[in-house]
Amino acid sequence: MIDILNSIKTDSISKINDIDSLHELDQLKSFLLGKKSPLMDVLKEIPKIPAQDRPIIGKQANQLKEDLTNCLNQKKQELINKERDHFLNNNQTDISLPTSGLPSGTYHPITTVTRLICSILNRYGYAIKQGPNIESDFNNFEALNIAPNHPARDMHDTFYLKNKRVLRTHTSPVQIRTMLMQEPPIKIIAPGKVYRCDADTSHSPVFHQIEGLFVDKHITFADLKGTLEAFLQELFGKNHAIRFRSSYFPFTEPSVEIDVSYTVNGKTSWLEIMGAGMVQRNVFRHVSYDPDSYTGFAFGLGIERIAMILYEIDNIRLFYENDHRFLSQF
C-alpha cells in the first residue's frame, strides 16, 4: 500500500508540474482528488487491510491528499500570476498619445506680480485695502496736498468724468480713505488700477500701482529705507544695489525715488522702481491726525514696470491686448 501511495505521489506531482493552463489544472484536480482517483481507490481499500496497519496507511493517505491539494493550489497561483504577467506585459495602449481633457487656465501676469508683491508685504504686516476707481477730487488730490492749480497737477494727466469726479491717477487715495476711517497705527497696502490720459506707445491710459502706508508714533525715514530695501531684495534678489534719490511728491516730505541696479545684456543701469517718502504733515491734517504725534511713510510702485523687468517684457501694451499667445506664457 505504501508503495502504491508513493507511486501515486510521484506520478501526481509530475503531472501537476506538466500543467500549463488553469483549465487543465481544474481537470487534473478532479482526476487526482475526485471520487474515481487512484488516491480514493486506496482510501476505499483501507477497511480491508489489517487493523494494526490501518492508522499508518490512513495517515499516509490523508497526508498525500493534503500535499496534493497544496501542490495544486500552489500551481494555480503560479498560473494566475503567469497569466496576469502575460496580460500586463502585452498591453498595447499607446500612452504617448496626447492627453485630452480640461485645458490649464492661466493667471494674467498683472495678477501674478500683484500677488507676489502683496505676499511679501503681507508678511511684513501690511493689510491689503482697496478703493474705488472713480474718486473725488478731494481724495485724489486735495487731501494729498495737491490743491487746485497746484503745479504738481501737471504730474497727473487726469481723466475727468462729466460729473467732475476723476478716475484716480494713483492708488494714494486709498491712504486717505483708510486714515479717514481708522486711527493709527495704519499699516496697509493698496493694489489697483489707475488712469492717466498721457497715452503714447510707452504709456498706457490704464495701469496698476501698489500703494503702501505705515503711520505710527516714531516712524523714521531710516525705517522707510530698511523696509523698502528688505522688500526690494526679496523681489529682485540680494545682489542688486539700491539707491535713494531725492524727488518730489506733494504728499510726502522728504520724497525719494528708489532705483535698483539691474543688468540686462551685460549692461548695468539704474532702474527707477518706486517713489516713497515721509507723509506730508498737511495730509495728516486733512484726515484729522495730529502731525506732532504721528509720523509715517508711504510708497508706491507700478506693477507693469515690475512685471516688465521680471519677465523681460518690452511693450506695456501687451498686458492689455490679452493675446492668448502672450497670456499662455504665464
Partner: peptide, 30 residues
C-alpha cells in the same frame, strides 16, 4: 520737514543707516 529734506538731500539719503520700524501693530484685516 522741508528743512530735514534739504539736509538729507545734500548729505545724501544713502548715508542714513537703514533700520526696521520698532512698532509692531497687529495686522489689520484685508
Amino acid at each position: 520737514p522741508c528743512i530735514a529734506e534739504e539736509v538729507a538731500r545734500l548729505i545724501g539719503f544713502d548715508t542714513i543707516e537703514s533700520t526696521l520700524p520698532h512698532s509692531l501693530p497687529i495686522q489689520d484685516n484685508d
